[in-house]
Amino acid sequence: MDVNEFLESDVRVVNIGLESFARELGERGVPTVHVVWAPRAANARIRDLLAKLGS
């Protein structure tokens, strides 16, 4: 869906992170699905290592 089609459509949200955002949008009738998220250890460790090397 290109940007203008998006602006013309009803917003339908996939929420990844703070559950309070999903709850509030849901209460306002905005179609929202909340994804249960947690960091993946391996990815996170590699990212942190890369960040350290890069700094």
């Binding site: 869906m1 998006f6 949200v13 996939v14 929420n15 990844i16 992170g17 179609p31 699905v33 998220w37």
Partner: peptide, 9 residues
């Protein structure tokens, strides 16, 4: 028909 990901991780 989801069209927006709201990311706050």
């Amino acid at each position: 028909g989801a069209n927006l990901a709201l990311i706050s991780v």
